[in-house]
């Protein structure tokens, strides 16, 4: 079953609607929320995996967009800045999913695979060089 990782951005007004409930109930989607910050009267962010048929996912996303919610499939809540990163490697044992990893075991240059990131934020607390940041 196709799974897509999404970042939803809510402008001020849409936070009181049970959007995730509707996605499950009306569009047969399996939802796995990694991280959410949705506060009434403020903008909000939601990072989640949605799994379902392509048709259901697309219909679900149309529904979400109808509220003016921005759906982003490339931008993630956790950003890794390759220029700031010195490849010290201190994040590697703290990243539970291997999203921060060494592609080459000899060169030991750190890389970031956003598709593996579950937004636990360990790297942000850990990075001595401020290379990992959160969008929210």
């Amino acid at each position: 079953m196709p799974t897509r990782k999404l970042l939803l951005y809510f402008s001020k007004c849409e936070t009181e609607k049970p959007i995730v409930y509707r996605l499950v109930k009306d569009y047969n989607l399996m939802i796995n929320i990694f991280r959410a910050k949705v506060t009434p009267d403020e903008e909000g962010y939601l990072v989640l995996d949605v799994a379902g048929t392509d048709e259901d996912i697309n219909n679900g996303l149309e529904y979400v967009k109808s509220f003016g919610v921005t759906v982003n499939e490339t931008l993630k809540g956790v950003r890794w800045d390759s220029v700031k990163c010195t490849s010290c490697g201190n994040c590697i044992p703290r990243c539970p999913t291997g999203a921060l990893y060494y592609p080459d075991k000899h060169a030991l240059k750190v890389d970031f695979d956003p598709t593996q990131c579950i937004e636990c934020l360990n790297c942000i607390k850990n990075c001595p060089f401020d290379a990992c940041r959160s969008l929210f």
Binding site: S87, C88, G89, N90, I92, A107, V110
Partner: peptide
Amino acid sequence: VKAGSLSSYAGAL
């Protein structure tokens, strides 16, 4: 034990 580094081998290289 999981091993992490603080010195950059890639940078040194």
